[in-house]
């Protein structure tokens, strides 16, 4: 994986290239010292959030590119929860970038598929059927009512964007747990709180959902 990143980093104008996994964070990177791990991790996570939201609406979405002053940030989905992210100067030849990334994407997919590859493959938390089990469990008992109440409370503090944030966070939460219960629901509530961003709104949200947990 490092070699594939090296191929990208050697293009003139590339300041940083890294593989980002939405579950485990930065998997591999080659970056100029001006970019801290925490900045890159936040950039990767935010770009991945844009990409995954877009993919739900536009199934043929390939990449997201953001132009900021002299920089351009670029994210490309590789496989599963793994993304390739690049920060480069605006002056970088777009055709060179596009062709290099297409090749890098193929190489990464092939490398990840190779059984003996010496890769820092992100650990798979659990097989898909666990997520399916969680989804089934969420459709019965108190969970539909609890989740609806949590989404309604979120809509009150976030407005119309709440439904997208809720769905996106719900998917991440489902993938991260073995079973829904009070403890994991509290984790879900924390994940939603962290998406709100505004401390006053977080407080209002937490006050609104406190009775939900009390009554469950």
């Amino acid at each position: 994986m490092e070699m594939i990143l090296e191929d990208i980093k050697c293009m003139p104008g590339v300041a940083c290239v890294f593989c980002f996994d939405t579950r485990t964070g930065i998997v591999a990177k080659i970056a100029n010292p001006q970019f801290s791990d925490s900045t890159l991790s936040s950039v990767g996570r935010t770009l991945a959030k844009i990409f995954s939201g877009g993919k739900q609406l536009f199934a043929d979405l390939k990449s997201v590119q953001l132009s900021v002053d002299q920089w351009s940030t670029f994210i490309l989905w590789i496989t599963g929860t793994l993304y390739l992210t690049i920060i480069h100067e605006q002056s970088l030849n777009p055709n060179l970038l596009s062709m290099t990334l297409a090749q890098a994407s193929k190489d990464l997919k092939a490398a990840l598929a190779a059984p003996a590859a010496e890769l820092a493959t992100p650990p798979i938390a659990k097989p898909d059927n666990d997520s399916e089990k969680v989804r089934q469990a969420l459709m019965s008992g108190p969970y539909p009512r609890v989740l609806a109440a949590m989404e309604n409370a979120l809509a009150k503090v976030m407005g119309p964007m709440a439904s997208i944030v809720f769905k996106d966070t719900l998917e991440k939460w489902i993938e991260s747990i073995d079973e829904p219960n009070r403890k994991t629901l509290e984790k879900f509530a924390q994940m939603l709180s962290s998406e709100i961003g505004d401390p006053e709104k977080i407080q209002a949200y937490e006050q609104m959902i406190a009775p939900i947990f009390g009554a469950k």
């Binding site: 900045t39 844009i50 609406l57 590119q65 953001l66 132009s67």
Partner: peptide, 29 residues
């Protein structure tokens, strides 16, 4: 909603990179 959320997330990335606003975002399909 997605367009607004993308724009707001774009602004969040700008601030991470030390800038106040982005020039544009391209979602390639």
């Amino acid at each position: 909603q997605f367009l607004a959320l993308s724009g707001l997330n774009g602004e969040a990335i700008c601030s991470l990179l030390g800038h106040s606003r982005f020039n544009h975002m391209i979602l390639s399909r």
